[in-house]
């Protein structure tokens, strides 16, 4: 039996072009990272608490708090661009 793959899809050209990344892996002990809230209640408290705990083992002056304006909408492209340009990693809080 030969079937059509129900998960098959085409990659958007842009995404495919950006897929190769030969940079070194993220060093969570020192690289700049973004902590990003989905804007729901408690998300900021959770992330700031996490940032405080990370202070035990890494600098925190390059950990920045970012947020999107609506929990019900995807992150806007500008926010994603900002994270991609300025940070090596991101931690998201989907805090309900």
């Amino acid at each position: 039996m030969r079937i059509i793959n129900p998960s098959f899809a085409l990659q958007p050209q842009l995404a495919a072009a950006n897929r190769s990344d030969d940079r070194a892996p993220v060093d969570w002990s020192k690289d700049p990272i973004a902590i990003i809230s989905n804007s729901k209640a408690n998300a900021q408290a959770l992330l700031e608490g996490l940032k405080g705990l990370m202070g035990d083992f890494r600098p925190t002056d390059n950990i920045d708090y970012l947020y999107k304006n609506s929990a019900a909408r995807p992150a806007p492209p500008e926010l994603i661009d900002q994270v991609a340009k300025n940070y090596r990693g991101a931690i998201l809080a989907l805090a309900d």
Partner: peptide, 21 residues
């Protein structure tokens, strides 16, 4: 257009495969 959350472009045969299933 791209379909979330994978952000991939659907094809008619793949949608048809799901309709058959």
């Amino acid at each position: 257009p791209a379909m979330s959350p994978r952000q991939v472009l659907p094809t008619l045969p793949a949608i048809a495969a799901n309709a058959v299933m």
